[in-house]
């Protein structure tokens, strides 16, 4: 249940953004969770629900985007892999660049910024 560690990292990034933009409230948070990020979305959501209390994001909605693994290959292929085989599905090369699906990213925030700011 390492999702709590990751949610606390999320809350600290969100709070930094809220301060930076003089927001008094966060209304929506969008994160992408890579299928190979090691994060279980349902546990992440559960951890988020308990961690957001008393924070600037207390009333925020959390949107989760599921990110498949995507690679690019020198043969020109750019796209998903087959299952968990980390090779190019077009030319079978193993020397590939993984461009998505192994990370977890805070993509977007909707902030409520008072007009006086």
């Amino acid at each position: 249940m390492h999702e709590f560690s990751v949610v606390s990292a999320l809350m600290s990034l969100v709070s930094e953004d809220a301060i930076k933009h003089n927001a008094d409230k966060v209304s929506r948070i969008t994160v992408s969770i890579g299928v190979m990020s090691g994060i279980e979305p349902s546990l992440f959501m559960e951890a988020y629900q308990s961690c957001k209390k008393g924070t600037v994001a207390e009333e925020a909605t959390l949107d989760i985007i599921h990110q498949e693994v995507e690679i690019s290959c020198s043969c020109g292929y750019c796209g998903e892999i087959v299952g968990v085989s980390f090779l190019c599905p077009q030319c079978q090369a193993v020397d590939i660049d993984v461009i998505a699906g192994e990370d977890m990213i805070l993509q977007q925030l909707e902030l409520d910024v008072p007009e006086s700011n």
Binding site: D17, V31, M104, Q107, D112, S116
Partner: peptide, 19 residues
């Protein structure tokens, strides 16, 4: 009543970055 505007911000930082 203080009016507020919704502002959309792109962050794109990894949640593993601080560690």
């Amino acid at each position: 009543v203080e009016n507020s505007n919704t502002k959309t911000v792109e962050d794109m930082r990894s949640l593993f970055k601080k560690n």
